[in-house]
Amino acid sequence: MPANAVALVGELAAIGGPAAIGGPAVLGELAAVGEPAFVVLGMITEVFRYFAENQTQLLEYTRQHAILVLRALVVAVPLGVTLGTLITYNDKLATVVLWLAGIMMTIPSVALFALLLPSLGTGSPPVVMALILYTQLPVIRNTYVGLTGVDEAAVEAGEGLGMTKFQRLRKIQIPMALPVVMSGVRNAVVLLVGIAAIGEIVGSGGLGVPIFEGYRSSNTVEIVGATVALALLTLTIDYAFGVVEQVFRLRNGEEIQPNLGTRAVRGLAGAAPSRVSGRDDDADATTTTTSAKP
């Protein structure tokens, strides 16, 4: 494999090379001279051309990629929510489960794929399994935090008004915790999309395929194109889950500034968004967003 890399270096010694082949001639020539602005412009033209020419294939890789993530979520979210709910009944169990899920999170993805290889073989199973394991910490913790973070007075009032334990869980705790759980799932999904790309080292398919292909054939344009597709997939999924989270928050009467998608969904559902007044929509003290966490 290092041999490939050597070849790649040779190929790319003149970075303008690929641009000169496909881009407008003038741009290509300027890029070949090495003027950075033109290199970037040339690259953008190239990437668009790549998209146009490999549309069907890219869509297929994107579909595979999304399915890898969805397969993991279908198992991981119910599992994580169940565990997160169970550990609210036992503090010691909570510490142990959260600690284990945390340990799981620190295992490098490449290492975890390798560790799952002997029992699950190559292809998508070890990758789906790894994704399930990686989803546990955000989902378990947010479920736990969401359920235990519910206003104690509301729970006490519910008890005093004659709600059974199960009614309190179903009517007060779960609805109040849902947005927090959702934001955990959202954090997890963004992570999963990225990890699934590395899954191609064990042959999982998905958008890792064109990235590695680009690497092997020293095709920078393909790497960039696939990366852009991956970023778009991440942003789309993140946005979609964000909408779900916002709908839950609005239903709970939280004051947030709904984004366009949320307004559209609520518009279709016939809800009146008029009484919603503005505040930062990403502010959420109980969840830990991407690493910006004390």
Binding site: D151, E152, A153, A154, V155, E156, A157, G158, E159, G160, L161, G162, M163, T164, K171, I172, P175, M176, R251, N252, G253, E254
Partner: peptide, 21 residues
């Protein structure tokens, strides 16, 4: 449970269900 439903209960923290109207 029946008893509690027959007895009104108000606390200092109010404990309203914020997710309901």
């Amino acid at each position: 449970i029946e008893l509690r439903r027959d007895v009104g209960y108000v606390i200092q923290e109010i404990g309203l269900f914020d997710h309901m109207t």
